[in-house]
Design a protein around this nucleic acid. Structure first.
Lengths: 188, 188
DNA sequence: CTCCTATATGTCAGTTGTGACATGTGGAAA
DNA sequence: TTTCCACATGTCACAACTGACATATAGGAG
């Protein structure tokens, strides 16, 4: 029961706590969710998750409620764990800036030929469109059964839809902008 | 001159190489850029940058071209460095999914009171609006002097403008959606 | 001449995240 | 009954990143 320090990061920890609000689960169970519905938002590897569950138990934020077959350990949220989750949800400011290696590449596109830069942007447009369609498919698959349930899941999904739409439109615009610039100043 | 393995990540390395295409610079010089125009896209700490420059020099992707006052070392891109940069720009796929601790929180907003969830969304809306305005201010500050220059910088900036606009609109929509859901099913 | 600031580089311990490897069990199908 | 797959947990080395600390100098203001 050693103390754990929090400074606003360590979201995997809070993702695990959050999933445990839906009921007790094993590391393996949680992993399915991390590779499934949470994969787009906060992917996690097995090694990281098992390690984190150990630390969480040591800190008293979760407890082992059952030990089943195949060494299965079922974890449940404690009051302290729920309190920490709420604290993180409401009182800790979400990260404002997020690294984007895609955008970083855009900054340096002047290094390669305009044709290659254009191809880069076309790929982004296509990638965003494809991603958008896969989210749309997800939406249609889950919408019928959960009409008013899972409001927040739908709100998160909507973010994804809007984000991918924005990125597709931006990439299309950027191609036009690039063409315009090259036309007026061919040695760009 | 030991070899360095690349597997698609390690963008700080490529950010440094990219900045050096603009001309030789010291670690300190580069740091100003990382804390300035690149801060929104790929922030870096001093300790990381100096370490990376050392590795880059060891790998032969950059060379020390000058040693000035105050132990200043000026680095320049080598042919190998430029080749690596181009490879990364064109042939390495940008990361598709990016972690978002903001969106992760959204998934778990059902844990707190609807009023608190609503406040969370209002803060996102305000934060996105504020960020948008600061980018708009940046745009107006740089636009006059660079009409057709820095196409790619403007394209990256446009991404930021569209992203923050999208996030603001989404947060506003989400508040309405939440109100709608609570109205039709008060115990949500 | 002294003090302050910007310049300039570096080290260290610690956290977070990745990918590969290792190990073993329960149950169902062939 | 053997064989295979899903279940289930764990370790290891390493890469990426953070924040704090340490150190030192050139040049200008007072």
């Amino acid at each position: 029961m050693s103390r754990l320090e929090y400074d606003g990061r360590m979201s995997l920890r809070h993702a695990a706590l959050g999933l445990l609000t839906l009921g007790p689960a094993s590391g393996y169970d949680l992993l399915q969710t991390f590779n499934g519905s949470l994969a787009n938002v906060w992917p996690a590897t097995q090694s990281q998750l098992y390690g984190e569950l150990g630390k969480l138990a040591e800190a008293g934020l979760v407890t082992v409620t059952e030990e089943g077959a195949r060494r299965r350990k079922e974890y449940a949220l404690t009051d302290a764990g729920l309190a920490e989750l709420k604290h993180w949800l409401i009182e800790v400011e979400p990260t404002a800036v997020r690294r984007s290696d895609m955008l970083l590449r855009v900054f340096f596109l002047g290094v390669v030929e305009p044709a290659q830069a254009d191809e880069f942007l076309r790929k982004r447009e296509a990638g965003a469109a494809e991603y958008h369609d896969s989210l749309r498919a997800t939406e249609e698959a889950i919408a019928p059964e959960t009409a008013d349930l899972a409001v927040y899941g739908r709100i998160a999904l909507e973010w994804g839809l809007r984000f991918t739409a924005m990125q597709r439109e931006w990439a299309a615009w950027a191609q036009e902008e690039l063409a315009r610039t090259l036309k007026s100043q061919p040695s760009g």
